[in-house]
Amino acid sequence: MSILNADFWIGVGVIAGIYGIFALGLQLNVGLTGLLNLGQAGFMCIGAYAMGMLVVDAGWPILATLPVAIAAAVLAGVLVGLPSLRLRSDYFAIATIAFAEIVRYVLQNAAFAGGNQGIIGYDAEWRDFAAWASDRLAAIGLGEQMQLPLLFSIWLVFALCVAVLRWLRRTPWGRVLTAIREDEDAAAALGKNVLAFKLQSLAIAAALAAIAGFFLALNVTYLYPGEFDPTFTFFGYAVLILGGFASYGGVVLGTIVLWTLIEGLRFLDLPLSSGEVGSLRFVLVGLTLVVLSMARPQGLLGRRAEMQLRQ
């Protein structure tokens, strides 16, 4: 059965993990703070490019670039948030998507980051590590699956992020965020600096996007602007809403379900042309999203009571 191919599903797991980390940030923003951040792909792009440029142009070790990549994305989050967070949520959403598109067009058209040709050759250290890890995995009969080290790394980090975010949610800081989502004015009346909390939420989401970008870069081994178009953010939202509002576990489940669906449909075998099958695949994905949004409005693991997004 070709559909049981291990390489294929390891690859799906890699994609699901990357989108999962990406969508955790959206969950923090949308589900727990009430910020409709549509610019997540832009933050991811900044993180991934920061890593690529530091390795290729400045010769940094790849792991050392991760904190800088995160810092760059966080800085972008603060710079974007400061002026735009005072906008109403729908205007904020459009402003963030505009930011993400500007990032993409600048990287495509400016000379400093390789333009359309992008960045390549930052992954040598990672490949050495992956080869080493594959040798160890070979001892237990898993040496043939070369993407396993990446899969394990991604899901380990994903799990860590979920744990940290869950812990944060129970702290006083997390409770202020929820209060802001429920009633911003009341939170302000209690003396909380609403803007500062929102900024922090956005900054953490940007950091998560940078981590997702780091792993995306390792998966595709080639960075170029086309990878960071708004579609990425939209699918991140699909993960989030599918899994459930205000639930980090929902993100985990949502990304597994969505990507099993999207990628699994590659094995749809019908007596149609490739073009028709390709179209049908996304018709089915779309239908599933519509049906799920109607049949299970709170998402797979969400709670209905937490679903009021303030305008």
Partner: peptide, 9 residues
Amino acid sequence: LSAARALVA
């Protein structure tokens, strides 16, 4: 990459 894996499968 995913498409290529599906084809190889």
